[in-house]
Design a protein around this nucleic acid. Structure first.
Lengths: 211, 211
DNA sequence: TAAAAAATACCCGCTAGTGGGTATATGGGC
DNA sequence: GCCCATATACCCACTAGCGGGTATTTTTTA
């Protein structure tokens, strides 16, 4: 019996275990109703004609038809349906293709229930959701198109001081500048390196031999 | 003309440039009065008998007599005098010996004026002060006496997740535990690895092949 | 079985750092 | 002189993380 207030989900994955796992995860969620499941993308195409589906959860690697193709079909034939892509890995190229095809969200299969629910919530509201690791892969994608030479000398200097575990205040003292300035440099560094945390920045710095 | 309210300093370093530099730095500080300078530790011993000195700033590497020996002498003959050790490097062994000898503070010569003033302020109040890098060396000292095997499996797991740039909340979700628990694990990890920041921890983890 | 270690989880208080943004000064190139 | 890049520095709002601590439960060890 469909609840008029809940979001209707359709799950497609060539692995029945994944399908069952997702069903098990979502069965007690009162905001969502699973109106269908399948291992066959072709079957999905037919059943979507008969069902009222809000969100399609789809694997991206299926032998019969890829998630990219399925997404393209769905967005063309049923533009109102949001597509949430599921994958074991966050390969950059695939993410990009799925985005081009029109997905609204992308999460990895190894994420927790929380992130899945968060994604569904977002999609149900018409928003988009890209999990952490997916976002990180995207940022890496942008990052690889930049040259390290676009970091200024000052910024490199500050990265090195950060690696020495100096606080912003300490760095400011050492460089005879304001702490506010150090913060601004940090912002610029994060932006230029497309990193989102000190951990990411450190890894970037090691990879690019800044340190 | 000595100001009764200011702290009397005596500077000893075999390099006149360092002495002059410190004098220049401190000459306009109204809380401090430099009552004497010297390049000769032996001379210091004599002059301390005649002067009212609150804090002795001393180099640790002097040809005539090491800072350790001088400190021992001063603490024995003039126990009220606080000793602030100055050094180019933060060698672990030397730091330890100076501490054993009775210094109240230790900073590196490459630190900024701010840290010097902070150190003097602390010593003037009867407190101790060890600069960042000195503290770090001390922590490394403790750290090297520990085996990595004292980290539990859970803690290692969390370190790896931190390296993946996951937030505490995200880690909690993934491990099905409370965010409070993750925080506690982090505290324990910092304590066991004797690190004080994520940067230090990351470096530790790479060095010890945890990641 | 008792003790120790590990895992879990909370309380409280606080701030370093960050995201969003704006703006000015300086130096170099054209 | 203009434009651009870089360096400097601020405003505001906010919170993730951390330091200090306590405690209980579960698991492991002897």
């Amino acid at each position: 019996m469909e609840n008029m207030l809940s979001t209707n989900l359709f799950i497609v994955d060539d692995h029945q275990l994944v399908v069952d796992g997702l069903r098990s995860l979502l069965n007690n969620e009162e905001n969502y109703t699973i109106v269908g499941c399948s291992n066959q993308p072709k079957e999905v195409m037919e059943r979507l004609d008969e069902l009222s589906v809000n969100i399609l959860l789809t694997d991206i690697n299926m032998p019969e038809m890829s998630g990219v193709e399925l997404t393209r079909y769905v967005k063309k034939k049923h533009p109102h349906i949001k597509v949430l892509a599921l994958s074991m890995f966050g390969e950059r190229q695939v993410i990009k293709e799925m985005i081009d095809a029109g997905i609204s969200g992308y999460i990895l299969k190894n994420t927790g229930k929380q992130e899945l629910l968060e994604a569904l919530d977002k999609l149900a509201k018409g928003q988009t959701f890209f999990g952490e690791e997916v976002t990180r892969e995207l940022m890496k994608s942008f990052r690889n198109n930049d040259e390290e030479s676009h970091l200024t000398n000052r910024e490199i200097e500050i990265i090195r001081l950060i690696e020495c575990e100096h606080s912003n205040k300490k760095i400011a003292d050492m460089l005879f500048i304001s702490e506010r300035t150090v913060e601004t440099h940090r912002k610029n560094i994060f932006r230029k390196t497309c990193t989102q945390s000190i951990v990411g920045l450190l890894k970037y710095a090691y990879e690019h031999k800044i340190i």
